[in-house]
Design a binder for these strands. Sequence first.
DNA 1: TGATATTATGACACCGGTGTCAGATTGGGA
DNA 2: TCCCAATCTGACACCGGTGTCATAATATCA
Lengths: 337, 337
Amino acid sequence: MKKVTINSVASYAGVSKKTVSRVLNNEPNVSDATREKVLKVFKELDYTPNPIARGLAQNRSFIIGCLYDNPSKSYITRVQTGALAACHELNYNLLIHPCELRGEELISNIEQLIQTSRLDGIVLTPPFSDFPELVSFLKSKKIPYARVASAVLEDDSISVRSNDEQGAFEITEHLIKLGHKEIAFIKGHPDHSATEQRFKGYRRALASNGIEFDERLVEEGNFSYHSGVDSARTILDLNPRPTAVFASNDYMAAAVLKLATQMQLRVPDDISIAGFDNAPIARHIWPGLTTIAQPVEEMTQQAVKQLITHIGDPQESPYQVTLEAKLITRESTAAIK
Amino acid sequence: MKKVTINSVASYAGVSKKTVSRVLNNEPNVSDATREKVLKVFKELDYTPNPIARGLAQNRSFIIGCLYDNPSKSYITRVQTGALAACHELNYNLLIHPCELRGEELISNIEQLIQTSRLDGIVLTPPFSDFPELVSFLKSKKIPYARVASAVLEDDSISVRSNDEQGAFEITEHLIKLGHKEIAFIKGHPDHSATEQRFKGYRRALASNGIEFDERLVEEGNFSYHSGVDSARTILDLNPRPTAVFASNDYMAAAVLKLATQMQLRVPDDISIAGFDNAPIARHIWPGLTTIAQPVEEMTQQAVKQLITHIGDPQESPYQVTLEAKLITRESTAAIK
DNA sequence: TGATATTATGACACCGGTGTCAGATTGGGA
DNA sequence: TCCCAATCTGACACCGGTGTCATAATATCA
């Protein structure tokens, strides 16, 4: 199996390699006859251009970096799926880079990543999407970036999100419509902007239904299953016990469910439980969790597509979209008895 | 911020770029004085060699591809974690490539991946690790590869595994020691070699404890939660009902637990349940699942390290390791009453 | 038909490294 | 002190593409 390079194609087709390059890149100023001749040789020789050589010549790597620091494996894989779909479509590669938001030297870690791997752009997923130090660092270094699920929509950056506040509003209202008035809330990790958004939605639903907000019903979690257990312990020991619990994600909701079950409480008869994210666990436990589904793959795919487009054509103005989140009702919530 | 290339370093240090290259690659035949002088300039100019240029010159990409087709997100992220650790250490990049084993044109899909991304090597994770068509294709194309968690140890390939058969043996014996004699078994996906291994371990434990194997207690699953539900339905309806169920992975075990709970069975009082893999769900449900923990990150890391070493020095003989799996007992199994 | 505008094509340098090989320098032994 | 081997070093081509620019071919118009 001999190597097929642009030179072999050129000599085989009887044209210069520059012309071959033109055909490769769909450049104008190639006659139809020549173009077809070259395309035929591509097929005959089964030619695939070498992205490394191309990268060297154009000073690009065709690699997008994807940053995440997220306890949810399913969220991560969904992000990856969306990012890969976009990369695949546009002939880019994806470099995944898990790292810690609060780890030491985050910025220099990222800087080194960019230096050594020569990334063409970066996708920021929560909690990085709204981390000001990182965003302004990328901006100052003029590294193209896109933000997934960020709360703040800046004017000048690519950002694709779904409406966390609205989702939280809807699920809270769902509980209220079922007759619940004492609805406990477990917050997420303070570094994630979604935490604040979901809390806002919860409060707005209470307010718009004339239910007074009760601070004692709010617990601080951090999105981890473990933090859910701690919060659940406090909430379930309250007297009177709330009739419903809305946890900011499904892992914490699963923890509430576990503890409730251990305490011989029947869900949803004795207490309703709602989560957020529609993680696999939401349907792997019994009863299944009522939750909010976000289009994570779709968000990431759009963000990466925009990012790559922007890299290829920087004056293209960045765009910002908000996608819909959707209420999914399962067995863990029911009308109050 | 000006670009720092090997040329800038060379002229700044007053040597030829070839000498700089020698220092970069730790080649011999550079005097200590020269070497230090160049190293100092590296620091001063904050020079990072361009992997793309290096790749072009050496006809390498410094990219390892990681193939997977696995329903378990946690398994995937663990694989990625291990692979990334190895890549990071050896200055390689990781290209993740989810794809379907039984998808159409798998081979040509992989071939295209290798062609277009110029992978230097491939890590195969289950179920690819033991997929003969793919392995022999890679061998014929002389693409270096390493296999993670494969059942078959060929002589001439890198392979790191853990002992599935032994793990299944131990967990079955654990149930037997608790007094169980009717132990149902749910098989995994037939494409995964682990499926056969775990079944073997189950049967060996029965045999070595003088318990007759009963075919009616065996159900065909496919590692998915959903298949677990189906298998559980059949098993739990058996009369007499088995006193324990050993599912080939934790998702299926969780499904058994869910159905048992729905049927008002108490776990472990009425029935014991065991899983395999120690997936997060094993401790996210109540009662927590007794299961087998495998060193997935460690396996993958070792495999990738070996692979990269082999790429750099092909006559280095490939090595094969089997790591230990470990029994983890939680609340889902108990002595028979 | 000739002059000019437009399109098509190729020669050549270049991207930032590495491989080859020749020549310069150093060191050790006679 | 001289010679030869061992050690250093650099010139130059090359990896496989792309950018620039000059020139060749063709089209347009008067």
